[in-house]
Design a protein around this nucleic acid. Structure first.
Lengths: 223, 223
DNA sequence: CAAATTATGGCACTCGATGACACTTGTCAA
DNA sequence: TTGACAAGTGTCATCGAGTGCCATAATTTG
């Protein structure tokens, strides 16, 4: 069984030892048990002790797999950001920054949404909902995004062959686009029915209303 | 001596009792001692115990004044956000959303920069530097901004008489403008010499380059 | 099988944060 | 002035997150 989900440890090294497998299993078990408990009784109400008891390892072991309780959740959303960057780097150089960033973003989400064989999309939504409803997690999540900004900006600068230290447009574009991504995700969550596709829809909508929102009064209907 | 700085407890009530004064003194002392220690040995390396020892109160008292160690720092920057909202609400209704938000932002910063009689500007910069260089503080700070978004959006919606639940432009505008504020602050900090004025300059610059950054390739010089 | 690695468990400890209880001090009414 | 009453504070106890250290068990390698 493929069982390819964002819950798994990324295929870092080719280590195919039994040791590696066991590590992966424990990590995976901790992850699943934690999300289960977080769903059931909330993030803050769940102690690390409870998570490790459910998997039957020591709490000490937990902190060898995850830097912190927060990291367990946030690292999952970080994987997602990593996908976005990968996709962005793979975009043809003929695309201008805006198009490339826009394309990379929609591609990543569509990819997740299309993975019918796995539970990536479901897990992603679960995690994001958890994050959005838990202040300390939200904080860590936003910090992550904030750090990504610089990386995205650097990537864009390289694509366009400009110096990111003198030209402010890369950082500016990265800031705006990532802010829109965040907004789209947030909006989609207000609808409990909404799936991953609605994130893309919200994103498109935001882009189309950008001009209208920033110019003049809003007496007219959104363009 | 006026001593009017953002270190002080905001003038909540007119309570001019001795009790009020004493409370204010303790809070103020904790604030100053904490910032002093944070500057000297870093936020994470400073324990609450050390702060309270410097002021000679119990650690329990500390947590009666501040919800957390993080709150002590972040609440100061939150005051700033509050100023922005006040200013925004005071803007004439004839101004369109973009103009109002832009005007409110520059006004608040200019006001801070102009307070030569106090150390508001200096303290603000000190705090923001501390926040930007301390991951957990940055996280809390960003979470604050994120929460402000909804309030700003609601304010804009009211000004324009649109329904924030159906019209997405308020939230969109708030998101973009606050993201630009954050970017401007961040950029100003890279220059150790920069004062508060440079934040406004960065903001203006970002606005003027918005179109250029989001459309086409960047072969041409920034508009 | 023996030796070198490496994951794990257990323990003690620090620190942030909270709750309970008692003490002191400022405030207000009689 | 006196006597509540409330508010700020200190002390003590406790919990949970996170870390350093060392012993031990599992795994890999020779």
């Amino acid at each position: 069984m493929p069982e390819s989900s964002i819950l798994e440890t990324p295929p870092v090294a080719g280590g195919s030892d039994r040791r590696e497998r066991k590590k992966r299993q424990t990590r995976d078990a901790l992850l699943r048990a934690a999300l289960e408990l977080f769903d059931a009784k909330g993030y803050e109400q769940t102690t690390v002790r409870e998570i490790t008891d459910a998997v039957d390892v020591s709490t000490r072991t937990f902190f060898r797999y995850f830097a912190s309780k927060e990291d367990l959740v946030v690292s999952l959303s970080a994987d997602f950001s990593a996908s976005l960057l990968d996709e962005l780097r793979g975009r043809p150089a003929t695309e201008d920054p805006f198009t490339a960033l826009h394309g990379a973003f929609t591609a990543v989400f569509r990819e997740y949404a299309a993975q019918s064989g796995s539970d990536s999309a479901a897990v992603y939504l679960r995690i994001v909902r958890l994050i959005e409803s838990t202040p300390p997690l939200l904080a860590g999540y936003l910090r992550n995004i904030h750090e990504q900004q610089d990386v995205v900006a650097a990537t864009l600068a390289e694509r366009e062959g400009v110096d990111p230290r003198t030209d402010r447009r890369p950082q500016l574009a990265a800031t705006i686009l990532l802010a829109l991504v965040g907004l789209s995700v947030k909006r989609s969550l207000t609808d409990p029915q909404a799936g991953i596709d609605s994130i893309v829809e919200e994103f498109e909508l935001a882009l189309s209303q950008l001009d209208s929102a920033l110019s003049g009064h809003w007496t007219a209907a959104p363009a």
